[in-house]
Design a protein around this nucleic acid. Structure first.
Lengths: 214, 214
DNA sequence: AATTCTGTTGATCAATTGATCTTTTAATCC
DNA sequence: GGATTAAAAGATCAATTGATCAACAGAATT
């Protein structure tokens, strides 16, 4: 029932037994499972249940993380790290490409990253808990993504109403809310989020009378 | 320090001592404080800390609620009940008033209700916990508010792109996201949310080429 | 094959937590 | 003013929880 009698216990790609992993690998495995676990049940999830999911003793966790908070910190980092690739500021500012295309390119890629249950929920849990990483992330997002979007919009806006930072937050929020509905509230998702993203962007650009070719 | 020696301990409007309240009043007081408490620390907040805030013994809570879950259920109800006044469907459908005015009226009133820390956070906590009240609320919102908005928009839209339910969710999400930023992520809020709401609505209507007077 | 090394287990601790129950005491009734 | 009622306190239970530590066992080394 448990596992075929494989004399060598430490292989079997994603099997169950494999005891005695090298530390780096075990640590990574713990963090991977912890991300899914805490994303599902919240940061108050119990170490014993996490250990059960890992097929491992609860005490083993404390060989790799001094405290539960340390483990959660590792979960944060695993989830937050690399979520915003560093070349987006310049790609968003590349005026050889129409702004609409830049925005669609960004939000298509970005939404593929964040419309993901683990990210979305851990981001929300950590936000509610007031985690500093959350604040830093949002500040970074504002500085590095939304502010350039505002600058580009402002450069192209033709109407008499100038775009503001709040306009960009509104665009952003409307898009992110798709993921919130799906993963936080577990409501049915739109079939083609890309289409909704494109529409949101069109709405945004049209408001400032920015033509498609600019 | 604690309280002037008021021989009758049970008055003093919002003072500290007043022991021995009538049950209905005590129950209400517990729920009121519990709403603020759980909104702040999450639904895993401990009964002992809640009791301390009430200036009451922990065991007293269980004289009014059989279990902690019962208390949380009471918190849900207190927070959810009456959040959507029942006359909005017709007010949103009153074509004697320009759609823009109807939308602004609704979202001004609605945002005043939901841009509130307790509501926003408990809604999010309960959403993450998968509470059924949360699902019911969102379904209700969709049926009773967003669907009429869609119908009204569709009746007035002049362009060749027809509005969809996702467009309405996008409008809604963009507005709600203001509150999420403020109360979940604790970011600085826009000074005049009403202005941002009006702008979001303008964006929405303009996309479907709906004039201000319609 | 024996030895060493270390990843992992199992037992256990102390603090915490939801919940129960007896006792106390403030308010009401006669 | 003393008796009665029930709201609240206080003590306590059993289960849970994060964390510790000695003992075990799988793999590498010699």
């Amino acid at each position: 029932m448990d596992q075929p009698a494989d004399s060598n216990a430490s292989d079997s790609e994603d099997g169950a037994i494999r005891r005695r992993l090298p530390p780096a690998e075990r640590r990574q495995q713990i963090v991977d499972v912890a991300v899914r676990f805490f994303a599902e049940v919240g940061l108050d999830g119990k170490t014993r249940e996490l250990a059960k999911r890992l097929g491992v003793t609860q005490s083993l966790l404390f060989n790799y993380f001094a405290t539960k908070d340390d483990l959660i910190e590792a979960v944060y980092e695993k989830v937050y790290i690399g979520r915003l690739s560093p070349d987006w500021p310049e790609r968003l500012s590349d005026r050889d490409v129409p702004l609409r295309d830049r925005l669609i390119a960004f939000y298509s890629e970005y939404s593929a990253l964040i419309f993901e249950r683990e990210w979305m929920r851990i981001f929300m849990f950590s936000g509610l808990a007031g985690a500093s990483l959350n604040h830093r992330y949002l500040k970074h997002l504002g500085d590095v993504i939304l502010r350039p979007i505002l600058a580009e919009t402002d450069a192209l806006a033709r109407g008499d109403t100038r775009p503001t930072m709040e306009d960009v937050w509104n665009l952003h929020g409307g898009i992110v809310y798709i993921g919130i509905r799906q993963h936080i509230y577990r409501m049915p998702a739109p079939e083609h989020p890309e289409d909704e993203i494109a529409r949101a962007i069109a709405k945004y650009l049209q408001f400032f009378e920015i033509e498609l070719e600019n």
